[in-house]
Structure formats: C-alpha cells, structure tokens
Design a protein around this nucleic acid. Structure first.
Lengths: 338, 338
DNA sequence: AGCAATGCTGAAAACGATTACAGTTCCCTT
DNA sequence: AAGGGAACTGTAATCGTTTTCAGCATTGCT
C-alpha cells in the first residue's frame, strides 16, 4: 500500500541512495537532481518509513518519561517542560503512566532495553536505587527528576527538600506556632525522609521539642492525608499547624477540617508542597512550596540528550534547583506567641 | 554492545528461527529446546530489538493520542482510560501535546504516515474535518473523541452536547432564572456550536427570549472566561445565571466575581462543563457536567484496535455517550420566580 | 588537449528481527 | 525392518532505510 523509497527513486530516475541523501543531509546532490527527487516525493505522497530508518541508524530519537500518575499537575507540568525541550531537539517523548505501581515503572524500563526508546527519564521514581543503578550500569541512558543517584553519566535534577522544609517550619514558627504536626508521604520515599529531616532541623533551630506523636504518614494521596489527619486528631489535638509533605494530602486535611468544623487558618494552619493547580483555587488558598517544574523538565531532557551525544561525561550532571515558599491564606493567621 | 538473536542462537546451539519461535508463539518447539533457549536468553541478558521486529512485522503496536493540553484533567482522565485498555490489549500509547496549536496536531499526524504508530486518536481536535477525512481516506487508522465524522471505519465517541446543554439551562430555569448568559468556547469548535444550540433550544422550550447580548466567547480558557465575563458585565448586568461552555471559563467567572463582590450563587448562578478536578474543590463548588471520560478513552482504544484487526468494517463505530449534570453549590440558590 | 582533482551518483551491504519453505529427525504402523 | 507421516528445526529471503565505496563525469589548470 505504501510507497517506498525505491518507488520514489524509480520515478525520479535516480538511486535510493540519492533519494536518501536529499531526504537527510542533501549534501552532495545537484540542485537539479534534488529538484527531481522532491518532485517525485510530492507527486507520490511519499513518507519515509521511520521504523526502517530507526533500525538502520540504531536510534529512535525518543525518550520515555515514566511518571507515577499522569493526573497530577506536578507531573504534567514537568512533562510540558520536557516536551518543549524535546521538540526543539527533535526528539519525541513517550509518556508512561506507572499508576503508582513500582512494578510498572520497571516494566516500562524494558522500553530501553528493547530499543524502543533511546533513553528514559524517571520522575520521582518509586523503585529502589539499586534497580536504577543496575540499568544505568549496563550502559543505558537514564535521567532522574526528584532524586539524586551516585552514578556517573546519569543526569539528576532535584530540589533541596531539607532546605525548603526548614523554611516552611520556620515560617510557621514565625506565625506563632509551637506545636506543628508533620504528614509524611510513604515511608520509603526519599522525599518523605528529607522533608521530615528539614522539619526536624527547623524544630531544633528554634529550640522546639520533637514530638513523635505529631508525625503521621499519608502516602502522598488525598485519602491518605485524610486518614492520617484523622489519626492525628484522635491522638492529640493540641497542635495548631500541620505541614503536609504534599498538596494532595493537604486536600485531605481540608476535607476533614470542613467536616469537623476546624477553621483554617484560625484554628489550624496548613502548608503543603508542590503548588498543585488546585492549591490556589481552594478556599482558603493553600500555602505551599513551588518547584520550577517546567524548568526541571526542560533541563533534564537537555542534559540527557547532551550526555547521549557526548563521548565523555559532562562536567556537571547533578542539578539542585531551588524551591520557593508561597505563603497564602492557609497559614497567614498570626497567632499570639503565648 | 547489545546481544542479538543470533548470539542467543549460537549459545543455545539452535537457529535464529527457533529462538524467534520461543520468543513469540513457541508453537512447535520441543520443551527441551525451549528450555535451552530460555536459558541462553537469561544468561546473556538478551532483549529482542523492538525496532527490527516492528520493521519485519510492519506494526508497532503503538497508538498516538493527540490532545490539546496535557495539563487539563479532562484530557488526562481520558488518557488514563486509553492507557488501561491499551495495556490489556498489549498496545502502547504515545501521548502528544499539541499545546492548543492546530498546526501541531497536523504535525503529530505524520507519525501515522511514517509508520511510527499504527493508529492515531484525536481528542477534541481543532483541525477541520477535511484534514481528518483526507488522512482517513488514505487508509490510515484514526479514531476521534469528542467529534463525529462521516467516514466508514473511523470510530468516534462523543457526547450529546445539545442534550446536556438543554438540561443545564432547564435546571437553571428551574432555579428561577430567566436571564441566562452563555459563554461559548472558540467559535470554530463544534462543541461550542452544539452547546449554544442546546442553550437556545432550552430557551425556546421554556418560552424565554433569546438575547444575543447575553452571548460571549471565552475561548475555553480561564483568562478567556474572565475577559468574556468582563465584556458581558460592562454591557448588561441583568442576567442572574451564566452557563459556561467549560469549567476553565467558569474559573475565570469566579475570579472576576470575587474581584467585583458578586456573590455566587446568591447574585449569580454558574454552571460549567467537564467536571474538572478543581470544580469540586473551589468555593462554592461548581455545578458542572460530567462526561464518562475514562470510559470514553477505554472505548475508543478498544474500537480502534478492533477495527484494525478486522477485515471488514465493524457494525458499530459511532458511540454517543451520555453526560450527567452535577448540581453543586454554584447553582443551587433558589430564586423567587419573579 | 591532456591530466588531476573534484563532485555526483549508484550498487550493495548492513541494521536485527520474522517466517515460508524445505529438510531433518523421530516415531509409529504394518 | 521399512515406509509414511508428524513434528521439529534450519536456511535464506524479507521488511525499508542508510551509508560505504567505487565508478563515472565534469571541471579547471597547464
């Protein structure tokens, strides 16, 4: 059904080699020949078969991006940045939704081994470092967003969780809070761990006691945040602020507060992380931490493509970007420093 | 660098044909031989080259999905449905973000012609029917969500805009409104047109006058909704309800109302379309129309794959699904039927 | 005009799998 | 034991490009 390069060659009265040349670089082809070939291509409606080309040149110019959930704007914003950079570099992006299942992350990585893609980017991966190191060690091109891995040649972009978490808590302390709860994501997550670390660091700096009963785990989901907050409330109700390790969990907090008549921010200050789109539409608007998502996406793609085209490793492959605390209504009620 | 099928064949002491057979159907291979081959595959860490296979079998088992904006949940929900169906059918989904540019939609369609994908699905396409018909007419597999096209062999799934728009307006009339404004999306869009049609139909049914000055265009975006509402307000302020052709524009309405002290729903009832995730978090919660997005995504993929594997056209290729009006706070203030 | 150098062009070998076809083995039946 | 048939396996062509290498023109220079 399809017209192929040899058909074009016949029609133009040249060889396939020549057609291929005008298709690609065009170097060393007479203007007249080129004209003939282009004419034939147009007349026959020829489109080069990308699969055949990929096989021959051993490249697909495609990057797989593996995210946990394509529905959360944190990921889609990053993807936007990736796609744009990929576009200017003439790459395609194959988006893979792992649906929060680590097993699916691994499964999608086989796209790398079977050469469907030239490279893969893991965004906030749930699989252990060892798996990633293993694959990177076998020479496959991998990039990571949201984590930092010790392997030469693997570009990583992440934010300083400890730093912004410290800022969040410091902000809350500044608003007069002395009992601040922390809702972590799932326990294996590095982000959870580092955000907790920042929380503890800030407590220490402000000479506030660390109270384990104010820590709960909400698995980064709205429902999880709801349940975690429920447990927290049933245990002790003397905290006046809660720092949720992401906005989704903060939404769960909002929900239970609405149900129980707890006013935000008067009775309870809330701060999240991610600057989800919803956070600035909900009432009261949610204080949160904004990461330069678009930039992160664009940067990792750029670095990854560069690293594939370089013969030696780049000088710089690990990028720590800064996040910014956005103080909104949910935490802007000044409490008497009793 | 990579180990290929011939290497495995050598190691197992068989031919590539045999290796290929155990890789695929395995039919007609001795258990013992199969064992040897599998052993060799494992030992050598062999992964079949998908590109070579695709070239040989003339298929990629991949479907391109072209959406306007990967950031809006309407699209991502549909994509989720697509991916799940694709997953069970052993297909991959290549997501393409056209960034609201019709030219990019067309550009992504070349993935079809150059055989990078076996089929493409357009979600709420902005390009004209003629372009789509042209490509479908050349024998490429195409599916459409959100529009209905006259071409045998092109599966389409869409909702009855007229029907639910009539319901929306009837609901508003039922709440006591007699002056109802309409914010349309961009003018070329069929959705815009049909939603307007439903709006007018309902007015007629309820013997309410059609007043052109109550119609404005907001381009389906939040900013567009804001500006459209601004124009509407500056022109005449005697309407008590507004039906926005999607939730994004409704958000723009919320914004300007907040700025101008217009209370929703007491002063103004608002209804949107799409059931964006934000719609149920914003205050007041936004009445909207819910489409079975996930199902639509799953269905179109199923039908498209089926149609590719059938020799004759399927009996049924056009599906009209029903949407559901979700009455929430933004339109639930009963007005005296003055 | 003759020669070298340059520039275009084409023939054919990859790329790594699948698969039609032919060939071999093996078993069963008589 | 021989023959026939079934079941398994291998050889080689094929998918549609790109690209190396060699050959052929053409041009410029003396």
């Amino acid at each position: 059904m399809d017209v192929k390069i040899v058909d074009v060659a016949h029609r133009a009265g040249v060889s396939t080699a020549t057609v291929s040349r005008v298709l690609n670089d065009s170097s060393g082809v007479t203007a007249k020949t080129k004209e003939k070939v282009l004419q034939a291509i147009k007349e026959m409606g020829y489109y080069p078969n990308a699969v055949a080309k990929n096989l021959r040149v051993q490249k697909t110019k495609t990057i797989a991006v593996i995210v946990q959930d394509i529905n959360v704007s944190y990921f889609t914003e990053i993807i936007k940045g990736m796609e744009n950079m990929a576009y200017v570099k003439h790459y395609k992006v194959l988006i893979c939704d792992a649906e929060n299942q680590p097993s699916k992350e691994l499964e999608y990585l086989t796209l790398l081994m079977n050469r469907t893609v030239d490279a893969a980017i893991l965004v906030a991966p749930a699989i252990p470092d060892s798996d990633i190191l293993d694959i990177a060690g076998r020479g496959y091109a991998i990039g990571i967003v949201g984590r930092h891995i010790e392997h030469e040649g693997v570009p990583c972009i992440y934010t300083d969780n400890v730093k912004f978490s410290t800022e969040v808590v410091t902000h809350l302390v500044g608003m007069g809070h002395t009992s601040i709860a922390f809702l972590s994501g799932y326990a294996e997550s590095i982000d959870s761990y580092e955000r907790l670390e920042g929380y503890m660091k800030a407590l220490k700096e402000h000479r506030l006691p660390f109270r384990p009963e104010l820590i709960e785990n909400g698995n980064f989901s709205e429902a999880g945040g709801y349940e975690a907050m429920e447990r927290l409330l049933s245990r002790s109700a003397d905290f006046t602020a809660v720092y949720a390790a992401n906005d989704e969990m903060a939404l769960g907090i909002y929900k239970i507060c609405r149900e129980r008549g707890i006013r935000i921010p008067e009775d309870l200050a809330v701060v999240g992380v991610d600057n989800n789109r919803i956070s600035k539409y909900i009432t009261p608007t949610l204080s949160t931490v904004n990461q330069p998502k678009y930039t992160m996406g664009a940067l990792i793609v750029e670095k990854l493509i560069d690293s594939m085209n370089e013969d030696q490793f780049s000088d710089r492959r690990v990028f720590k970007v800064d996040s910014e605390l956005l103080v909104r209504s949910s935490s802007s009620f000044q409490r008497n420093s009793s």
